[in-house]
Nucleic acid binder design. Structure first.
Lengths: 210, 210
DNA sequence: GAATAAGAGGAGGTGCCCCTCAGGTTGTCA
DNA sequence: TGACAACCTGAGGGGCACCTCCTCTTATTC
């Protein structure tokens, strides 16, 4: 918590700039560009946020809250299928147009306990909502968490391509995929889903940008 | 067409190295890394391939042939749905494990007439195969070329994440999506597909790497 | 209003990449 | 075998990004 007035201001400007830059360029956005955008020197950025992760967490905290609020509402829905749909719609809505937040949800950062906790929590929640829809016979039994994460990944790539020109395309993609998830439309899938371990490693691997 | 023996050899080594590097790092792979991998100096690379695009075309030519051969076989299948499935399975099989070729198919390079022709041809083919499966009542009528391209994009991101650790995951994803494409008991999708123009722009935009 | 500690600035070292070009090398052909 | 054109090399300039650290500035406090 900084004390000096100018320090507080720099802090706020940096967070705002980071949100803008991460939203457009993803979590690997240039820190120098963020400092420029905030109107402060690069040294000031590093004074406030020694690592990229510090800045990421500060920038996405409100967005993650937004996600949690929406998730709570969704989880109150009675019907398991409708609950799954609402949960996923909320999950993707908060990502829409924010390339960085999608990156953030797509990956794992093993060296950071705080984000690991967030991800564990989210994965567990998705797992539960999905399992309930499967138990009710509405969702096909042969899909898994990994398939949902795959959908998150796809969404990121769609943003890379469409930028801001097709801002609702995520919703089309989601509803199309939901039709694939329905039990009554299911046909056998020739490959098993990724194991938990494969999924985890893949989410980490995504961080080693290529 | 180079004449000197050493030149021919350099040429071949460069193409081989480019195939390896593009496969792992995508079409933006470092040209210096390719030269290193080929065991030639960077100047030699530029002598043989003045632009990145020249190298891309040389590197992917055989892979594209492979695709065309598989596509021909698929197109001979009688049943329109089975034809669509075979066509897509071939399309994704040739991309599997080659991040660069996926990039190549995912994008448009408006400044290069040769690749534009290739892409036009491919889009037209997909459009036809899809339309036939729709006319036969097997594929739902509310999907379009853009949805298939979306699947190509998704595939690329899956490769980013899984690398070589889950080499058959593309097949799972494809078959899941095929279930979404089936006409029987399809549910309405709340958003329209991208227009041809939006799709084209998105494919170009993907090139402006972020 | 002066002292001070916290903050801001930004030059500069390092690393990676793009691309060019001057000068040395070598395969080929007469 | 000698001459030459084609070829190869790699240093180096320009860009961008990361990150550090020394210097200067300034809000605050007494």
């Amino acid at each position: 918590m900084p004390k000096r007035r100018d320090s507080i201001e720099s802090h706020a400007r940096l967070i705002a700039a980071a949100q803008r830059e991460f939203a457009v360029h993803g979590v690997n956005a240039s820190l120098e560009a963020i400092a420029r955008d905030a109107g402060v020197a690069i040294g000031t950025l590093y004074r406030h946020f020694p690592t990229r992760m510090d800045l990421l967490i500060a920038a996405f905290e409100p967005r993650f809250q937004e996600f949690l609020d929406g998730a709570s509402s969704a989880l109150e829905i009675e019907d398991p299928w409708a609950r799954l749909v609402a949960y996923l719609e909320n999950l993707f809505r908060v990502q829409a147009g924010d390339r960085g937040f999608n990156d953030f949800l797509s990956r794992r950062f093993p060296s950071n306990a705080e984000t690991e906790r967030i991800h564990d929590q989210m994965c567990e929640q998705i797992d539960t909502v999905l399992a309930q829809a499967q138990q009710s016979g509405q969702a096909r039994p042969d899909i898994a968490l990994a398939d949902i994460v795959n959908l998150i990944w796809s969404n990121g790539r769609m943003m890379d391509a469409t930028g801001t020109t097709a801002p609702n395309e995520w919703r089309r993609h989601l509803y199309l995929m939901l039709d694939a998830y329905r039990a009554e439309r299911a046909h056998p899938i020739p490959e098993p889903p990724m194991t938990q371990e494969q999924l985890y490693n893949a989410m980490v691997h995504l961080g080693k940008a290529y």
